[in-house]
Amino acid sequence: MQNSHSGVNQLGGVFVNGRPLPDSTRQKIVELAHSGARPCDISRILQVSNGCVSKILGRYYETGSIRPRAIGGSKPRVATPEVVSKIAQYKRECPSIFAWEIRDRLLSEGVCTNDNIPSVSSINRVLRNLASEKQQMGADGMYDKLRMLNGQTGSWGTRPGWYPGTSVPGQPTQDGCQQQEGGGENTNSISSNGEDSDEAQMRLQLKRKLQRNRTSFTQEQIEALEKEFERTHYPDVFARERLAAKIDLPEARIQVWFSNRRAKWRREEKLRNQRRQASNTPSHIPISSSFSTSVYQPIPQPTTPVSSFTSGSMLGRTDTALTNTYSALPPMPSFTMANNLPMQPPVPSQTSSYSCMLPTSPSVNGRSYDTYTPPHMQTHMNSQPMGTSGTTSTGLISPGVSVPVQVPGSEPDMSQYWPRLQ
């Protein structure tokens, strides 16, 4: 039975679970980093996980050691009161100082060594604690504590007292930064006198190289990059290397530039699409467009005044059976039934097929058609009795279509119309 579990990581490298990497692998990681390889490249070359490479390099940059820390136990506290007071002093002298600059000053002034120097995250935590204590304490208590930490007896009751030896409130920041720059020169002199001055200088240079600022491109470089971006948004590694040799930039910087440029292009394309949609959409909808001609068919113009009344309900007709019959029939052209047409008796099958359309009241044959006459024609229609054979009435077949029909004066039988409509 094995005491430890061995495995293979996602890159194909072998590791022992819970145990640190061998010293030979750690040394190779540092050597590759000094030669300029990126952590992701080191991870692929040595088949070590990216997190492990970053952790080893980060500890090497901070402490200069590649040895693993002790497994188990607690780390001794490195942010001692003396170190905290120095950090507060540096922050007062130059409020814009960075944590890694404070760390360098602690090393250069001999406050800490490589073994007990606090990390950048520890210094940031100390600065946050100082800021929170400043908010919790009152103004007087804060000034007393700062005077105690600074070891001075001057008056701290006013704002300019934060910067000793100065009279203009805006000047101390520059003086403090100048003092810090002077301390940086002392850093070089002190570290050069040490035993491991060369190694420390190499480590600091490598650290500065990794902690780079934003790349500033010249106009020629920007023009070359934009020209390549117009050709393709995704250049391959050969195109990037050719462009890197042409404009004297690292291939990694060119790759990052193209990634950022593609993101910018997507944002601009989104804005262009929004403007295009806004320009195509009308600002207001016309009133006429809300009524579609496919839904509402136009009603033909009436030929006679009587045809303006298109349904039985508008003429005072309360018989719903006839109203439904007229509205359900398709529109037909106007025609006239003459008196000489043969009077065919209704076929029983045809009569039964339209039995649902006729009223059940037996008085329908005896009703006159003056009910369908509009009010303004009552006088004219009353002067001509319906009993004469020459009287013409208008029957409504569908809305908007008038059918003048000659009705025999002897017997106005409704059943004569249905064979004609089939």
Rank of each mutant, 00 (worst) to 15 (best):
Q2W: 14
S4G: 11
H5Y: 12
H5I: 12
S6R: 07
V8F: 11
N9S: 01
L11N: 06
L11P: 02
G12P: 01
G13L: 02
G13P: 01
V14W: 11
V14K: 06
F15T: 03
V16R: 06
N17P: 00
N17E: 05
R19L: 05
P20L: 01
P22K: 12
P22H: 07
D23V: 09
D23M: 05
S24E: 12
T25G: 04
T25I: 11
R26L: 02
K28D: 07
I29Q: 03
L32A: 08
L32P: 03
A33V: 07
H34T: 08
G36K: 05
P39V: 05
P39C: 06
C40F: 05
D41G: 06
I42Q: 01
S43F: 02
R44S: 07
I45F: 11
Q47V: 02
V48Q: 03
V48L: 04
S49G: 00
S49T: 06
S49H: 03
N50G: 14
G51M: 00
C52Q: 01
C52R: 02
C52S: 08
C52V: 08
V53F: 01
S54A: 15
S54Y: 14
I56R: 01
I56W: 15
G58Y: 13
G58S: 03
R59I: 08
R59S: 06
R59L: 14
Y60L: 03
Y61W: 08
T63G: 02
T63D: 15
T63S: 13
T63K: 04
G64I: 02
G64Y: 02
G64C: 04
I66K: 03
I66M: 08
R67Q: 12
R67P: 01
R69W: 09
A70M: 15
I71F: 05
G72R: 00
G73H: 00
S74I: 00
K75S: 07
K75H: 07
P76N: 03
R77A: 02
R77F: 02
V78F: 04
T80G: 06
T80Q: 04
P81K: 11
E82K: 06
V83Y: 03
V83N: 14
V84G: 04
V84R: 15
V84C: 10
A88I: 03
A88W: 00
A88M: 08
Q89V: 12
Q89P: 03
Y90A: 15
Y90W: 13
E93W: 14
C94E: 13
S96N: 14
F98H: 15
A99R: 03
A99H: 04
E101S: 11
R103Q: 13
D104L: 07
D104S: 12
D104W: 00
R105K: 08
R105S: 12
L106H: 00
L107V: 13
L107P: 09
G110H: 14
G110W: 10
G110E: 11
V111P: 10
C112I: 11
T113R: 06
T113P: 14
T113L: 11
N114A: 11
N114H: 12
D115V: 10
I117M: 14
S121L: 02
S122H: 04
I123F: 01
I123Y: 01
R125C: 00
R125I: 00
V126M: 15
N129H: 15
A131R: 05
S132N: 12
S132W: 13
E133K: 08
K134S: 14
K134H: 08
Q135A: 10
Q136N: 07
M137F: 09
M137D: 15
D140S: 10
D140V: 12
D140M: 09
G141M: 12
Y143V: 14
D144M: 11
D144E: 09
K145P: 08
L146W: 08
M148W: 09
M148K: 11
M148G: 07
L149C: 04
L149I: 11
N150M: 14
N150K: 14
